[in-house]
Amino acid sequence: MANEVVDHGRRRFLTSATAVVGGVGIVSAAVPFIKSWEPSARAKAAGAPVTQSLKKIESGQQLIVAWRSLPVFIVNRTPEQLAALPKQDPRLVDPKSDGSSSEQQPKYAQNETRSIKPEWLVMVGICTHLGCVPNYVGEMKPEPFDPNWQGGYYCPCHHSRYDMAGRVYRGVPAPKNMQIPPYHFVDDTTVQIGVGPKEGA
């Protein structure tokens, strides 16, 4: 018994072959488990476009709606707030949204007001630093965090500040302007978030 010479080559080959095939099996078996973390059909359905009437939002007011579980700020900006926007440019990281923030809005919202219609701001209300929801501080009056405050957003987590177009100020932790989602106006008083305006329209 057991006196024959061990064929080490065959043994090593079979060990590696079994290990490789077994390893492939374990990795393949892991795939369904990893994939199960992707947004489910329900989450995707909930991520469908959201339609919102603008009739009840008065000048200077903000409404928050959920789209893909994200808070979307809809603001009816006042003429004063709009007038203050260009004046902020020197104090901003990327005033034209064409630098570090070039991917933060669709092409049709890459302008001074970062919107389709100047007065209507539609923006994903997530701080670009670590994902908190910034507070809307619309009044243009000195604030403890900024004596020269011209209205905008103030993040309670790490004190990042944004102007009334969601553009980030210099010298705060947040690196980019807040994100503008795809949206379009169904009619004058209805906006749909999640779908951009049709090409050429």
Partner: peptide, 30 residues
């Protein structure tokens, strides 16, 4: 992995199992 999508309440348990079976990717296999 099942606990990640299961809802242990009398009103939600049955639905959450169907949610796993249909809406969660590969939930049926798990």
């Amino acid at each position: 992995f099942l606990t990640m999508n299961y809802d242990p309440s009398a009103s939600g348990a049955f639905d959450s199992v169907q949610y796993i079976m249909r809406d969660v990717e590969w939930g049926w296999l798990i």
